[in-house]
């Protein structure tokens, strides 16, 4: 039951992030939304590694770590691209 609760929260985070990603125009908000979606997915992974009395599964934990590094890399590149656009603005 706990994993349904935590994992379900992850799905809600994913959906909220998706909504925000689609409706907000500014890049910063889109990036935050994308990271919320990512957190949602990681939330589910952490939730499913605990199944009742069974031994916790280390594989989803490792996937989360990998996923975080990927999300950080993508966010950093997006911010750098945006910074470059700002710098080229006539008044920037």
């Amino acid at each position: 039951m706990t994993e349904l609760l935590f994992g379900g929260a992850g799905i809600l985070l994913f959906a909220m992030g998706l909504w925000s990603f689609l409706v907000h125009e500014p890049l910063l908000r889109k990036l935050i939304a994308f990271n919320v979606m990512g957190s949602g997915v990681f939330h589910i992974l952490v939730a499913i590694s605990e199944r009742g009395a069974l031994r916790p599964d280390p594989v989803p934990h490792a996937l989360v770590l990998t996923g975080i590094v990927v999300a950080v890399s993508a966010t950093a590149l997006a911010l750098a691209l945006d910074r470059r656009l700002d710098d080229e603005d006539p008044d920037g």
Partner: peptide
């Protein structure tokens, strides 16, 4: 780690 490297190289290239 390749993804991380690609991001760094991308940032440097800007």
């Amino acid at each position: 780690l390749g993804v991380l490297l690609a991001a760094l190289l991308g940032i440097w290239s800007l």
